[in-house]
Nucleic acid binder design. Structure first.
Length: 445
RNA sequence: GGCCCUAUCGUCUAACGGUUAGGACAUUGCCUUCUCAAGGCAGUAAUCAGAGUUCGAUUCUCUGUAGGGUCACCA
């Protein structure tokens, strides 16, 4: 407790660039960021690149890009490999004071060294108070004298983490639950180094549908931020969703921004059990955020996805397009299946489609069309849907709405499913609408 | 298997030891309606099991069960 109140909070997110930014890591990053910000502290990003064989610059770039895109800007940046000199000094110090030793090994697999540095395990019980889990206790005896470096120049994860956390003044280690059993050995190293112990908080894991840990190998690309980003999920929705997996504000609020998290987040209230990632809810959230988007921004995005429909038509059609999607990539599939064809042309259709239910008298339909044509003449070239509705409603009610509106809508859209004819006319304008109705009349006569 | 962690509707979750166990997503029905959506309203649905402690356990304790994590010269 005293650590929290007396010193400035410093948190860190320490991914290793051996894969794309994982959705679970994303939450770790978010909570670290939020926790630091709400305590007026610092949030450090540290790339843990000590495994030279598996690191790639692409992954490092993906991680950094993803974080920046989400708005989780770090205050300080480190690359673990750049601390090799410091690690070496610490390692030497431990060897000198007998806390670690150079050990002769037999080579069991490829890459094994004949000599490694092992930590002299004091074989004791280690206990720590986890902000989320409370009191946790381990007996480190079973760990044996574990390896902390392959050589003076090649520290292994546990050692590098402790050394770096120490150097960077990390006060709070907020990380995934998969690290909880790593904690005792890291505490042992800390003690040997004379480093202060940070406050620990182990987050529950994000699970797949089958309750297993979300892993790239098992669950494919749906575990990476890049995947969701590519599908067109909004960062606001992603942050909101991830932040509420395993945590909630304690009331019925569902829509939270990054700033809301900073003001409301309470690490003690983080759930202890793992949570399944529920894409349906993510979609719902995304839709909520799409609804909130400024029209101009929306137009930009939709416009890029619909090269065949541009300008004012697209502008007027925007609400009816957005109405049908929960993610922007939905537009691609909807467009591919011809859902929006009516915006540029009328697909050919059999004239029977112009009859409502079991009607079959073409002349009656033509009468309705003629009334519509007359009405269009009296309307402005680009009427609002409301204006069109007012002009046609009484007639349609009198003659039968289905009888009038179904053929009209079909003539205008050429489709079984579409926006209603009033909206259609408001999108197309009276000139285009007149053309399409005339084409329908020609079909019938 | 050892060690560790966890357990409320299908999913995410709320509930100072006393609630008709609440909300959201999903789902179902209804309304609206010319179609498809959207929207509105309503409904179905949960305390893992068994012992304790207590006047009273979702809540505390123990046991069991189930699930998960971790056991590298990876991070």
């Amino acid at each position: 407790m005293s650590l929290q109140t007396n010193s400035k909070v410093v948190t860190r997110f320490a991914p290793s660039p051996t894969g794309f930014l994982h959705i679970g890591s994303l939450r770790t990053a978010l909570f670290n960021y939020v926790y630091a910000k709400q305590h007026g502290g610092k949030y450090v990003l540290r790339i843990e690149d000590t495994d030279k064989a598996r690191n790639t610059p692409e992954f490092e770039k993906d991680i950094m890009d993803g974080l920046v895109w989400l708005g989780l800007q770090h205050d300080e940046f480190f690359r673990q490999s750049e601390h090799a000199g410091k690690h070496k000094i610490y390692l030497q110090k431990l060897i000198d004071n007998g806390a670690a030793y150079i050990s002769k090994e037999k080579i069991e697999k490829e890459g094994d060294r004949a000599e490694v540095i092992r930590f002299k395990n004091p074989n004791k019980k280690v206990a720590f108070d986890d902000l989320i889990r409370g009191h946790v206790e381990f007996d480190t005896t079973e760990l044996g004298d574990f390896v902390i470096a392959k050589s003076l120049d090649e520290p292994v994860f546990h050692f590098a983490v402790v050394a770096d956390d120490f150097d960077e003044g990390i006060t709070h280690v907020i990380r995934g639950e998969d690290h909880i059993s790593n904690t005792p050995r890291q505490i042992l190293i800390q003690e040997a180094l004379g480093a202060p112990r940070p406050v620990y908080a182990h987050l529950p894991l994000i699970l797949a549908e089958d309750r297993s840990k979300l892993s790239k190998r098992k669950h494919g690309e749906a575990v990476s931020l890049a995947y969701y980003r590519k599908l067109g999920y909004l960062k606001e929705a992603l942050i909101n969703f991830i932040g509420m997996l395993g945590w909630n504000p304690g009331n019925d609020e569902e829509l939270l921004s990054l700033d809301d998290f900073i003001s409301k987040f309470t690490i003690e209230k983080v759930q202890k059990g793992g949570a399944i990632l529920n894409v349906e809810k993510l979609k719902w959230l995304n839709r909520e955020y799409i609804k909130k988007m400024p029209t101009a921004e929306l137009l930009n995005i939709v416009s890029a996805k619909m090269p065949n429909t541009q300008g004012e038509i697209l502008e007027r059609a925007l609400p009816s397009i957005v109405d049908h999607i929960s993610v922007f990539s939905d537009i691609d599939s909807l467009a591919a299946s011809g859902e929006f064809n009516y915006l540029s042309n009328v697909d050919d259709y059999p004239k029977e489609k112009l009859f409502w239910k079991d009607e079959s008298d073409g002349s009656v339909v033509i009468n309705h069309f003629n009334f519509a044509l007359e009405t269009l003449k009296k309307l402005p070239a680009e009427p609002t849907a409301e204006q069109v509705k007012t002009a046609l409603w009484d007639y349609a009610s009198e003659k039968g709405r289905g009888q009038v509106l179904w053929p009209l809508r079909y003539a205008l859209s050429g489709k079984d499913k579409s926006p209603d004819p009033f909206v259609l006319i408001s999108i197309l304008g009276t000139i285009q609408a007149t053309e399409r109705i005339n084409a329908a009349i020609k079909k019938l006569s």
